[in-house]
Amino acid sequence: MLGDKAFSLIQELDRSQHGTLPPFNEDAVRQALEEIDSLFQQNVADINHLAEDDALVAGIHLRHAALERNKRCLLAYLYNRLERLRTMRWQLGSVLPSDVRTNLCEPELEWFAQYSSTVARYMRSLGDGQGLDLTVDLKPPKNLYIEVRCLQDYGEFELEEGEVVLLSKDSTHFLPMEHCQHLIRQGVLQHVK
């Protein structure tokens, strides 16, 4: 049926887990593009014969609608992938994990590099030339300090003021939030609610 290939792309993206990026389906995209191309060629041929046969109008309309639909699906596919890529920039930082990288196509990689540098440039320009990392505290924190529990023997950890905290297993600490966030992501600390 017309437009099936393009629609399957949308389905594939929709079924994948939220927040992950499935591999770029180059095959399906190419087939959808070929379909668009052949539909267009047929339409061009039919329009040339339009003066002889009025009945061709309906067919041209149908093909054009299918063509439009394919185009919409392809654009939606690409756009949504970019959206996911953008949230990843804010969540994971400028360096993508390798499993995500392999799933991207060449233009996407290029876009990501450009977007990254734009964001970085903007963040550098903030705060009177001091720079401000916008990716931390996406939601405003309720407290400057949080209570964390240490899940493994990590050893000594230095705070920004130069104080040294010894993180040993099963000890509880009350520390500045910004310093422990990456340790929480690494799974060394656990936030106690």
Partner: peptide
């Protein structure tokens, strides 16, 4: 701990 939380006193508890 509750008092320290309220007064922002950093602590380590073992």
């Amino acid at each position: 701990q509750a008092l320290f939380r309220a007064d922002h006193i950093l602590y380590t508890l073992c």
